[in-house]
Nucleic acid binder design. Structure first.
Lengths: 202, 202
DNA sequence: CCGTTAAGGTACACGGTGTATCTTAACGAG
DNA sequence: CTCGTTAAGATACACCGTGTACCTTAACGG
């Protein structure tokens, strides 16, 4: 700020400030029009600059998109819930994933195919960057439940551990919409907890 | 055939014959280059014709792609397995899905994102066309198990019914590869059947 | 204060889209 | 078998987004 702005002459942004504005504009375009209709032109216009400025930093559409996504991802932090009960923790974990990252996840899911093709990255890799360490959060949740004496140790297999998040993701990927609260409760109450009981973990 | 083919003059295909050749070429292109790089030009060349012939039938890329997919889908028939046991039936169903349609499913999954963005179609809609009536096959399997007295009627909710296929799809979507036989067995033996027992359905 | 750097603007070649004609082969009614 | 109708196949064109090149001028730093 500060200095001047004499007679409508627009300040010229540089460096990190500019770069951040560019990526913000890119993300906005991505959310608005999607990957397919995403154009450098539109991003440039939205950021009040020209395509040259963009090309100078990101030489192709996938690269720019990836950068915009990366910036968006590192924005919010994942917290392991601690409600005092296994049921509460799992529901909280899914709800948190639902609320915070759905838009992000939806946008990403919509472009995973292309992304995969363009980079050769496995989907699982990208999944981790979307959902952060939720898998390990699940482990933490179980460990706490064991510590409370709520769950018997050593009987929960990997597959069962992944189950709630797998079902959550499945629904998200199928509907491209936030998962309703009652669906989340359903996953936990009619699938996950009964299954733990069946395996004698509760 | 029959008539002639004088001095290298190429026969001019018409109607259904032509249309089938066009869609075959479109599918081949789709499998080769993916949705993003899919062009009318390439399809026309592969089918030894011109873009005009394509545009006359399908006015846009999504429409042509959808038609090509539809043609591919209706090629193979889905059969409800009947092995005499619930476990056998479910495993057979998943194995069948695995063997027959994985390539199709993988190709589609790899391009669904764009497709969705471009057309607004929900993934669930397309899913149904990919996996056919497997969901209703699952119902049939359960009904038979009930008839055999293997399963108690009325306790299996929709969500539980969908569970094996959901997990199967989840894994397919994450790995972009056929699901190994032991994973299929795992889904049935450590998740599905124990869950039925937990709900008192066995 | 002046030289260097990079932002912002403009122009261009290229490739894919979608439309509009034009020709000519295939088909079908008489 | 012939002739009129239909549609296949071939161009051509306007339009748009891409990626590159080049120029100018504002911002920064020694």
């Amino acid at each position: 700020m500060a200095r001047m702005e004499q007679t409508g002459v627009r300040t010229r942004r540089r460096g990190a400030t500019l770069e951040d504005a560019l990526l913000a504009a890119a993300w906005a375009e991505l959310a608005k029009t999607g990957y397919t209709n995403f154009t450098f032109d539109a991003v440039a216009k939205r950021a009040n600059t020209s395509r040259a400025v963009l090309y100078r930093r990101w030489s192709s559409k996938p690269k720019l998109v990836r950068a915009a996504i990366a910036r968006e991802i590192q924005k919010d932090e994942v917290v392991t819930p601690d409600t005092g009960s296994l049921r509460g923790d799992v529901i909280a974990l899914l709800t948190q994933a639902n609320g915070r990252r759905v838009r992000l996840a939806i946008t990403l899911l919509a472009h995973l195919g292309d992304y995969y093709r363009a980079t050769g990255t496995s989907i699982a890799t990208l999944r981790n960057s979307i959902y952060g360490d939720r898998e390990s959060n699940m482990e933490t949740i179980i460990e706490r439940a064991v510590a409370r004496g709520e769950v018997k140790p050593g009987v929960i297999s990997d597959r069962i551990l992944r189950l709630p998040l797998d079902l959550f993701r499945q629904q998200l990927a199928m509907t491209y919409a936030p998962v309703p609260a009652e669906e989340i409760a359903g996953i936990v109450d009619t699938i996950f907890l009964p299954l733990l009981k069946a395996h004698g973990a509760l």
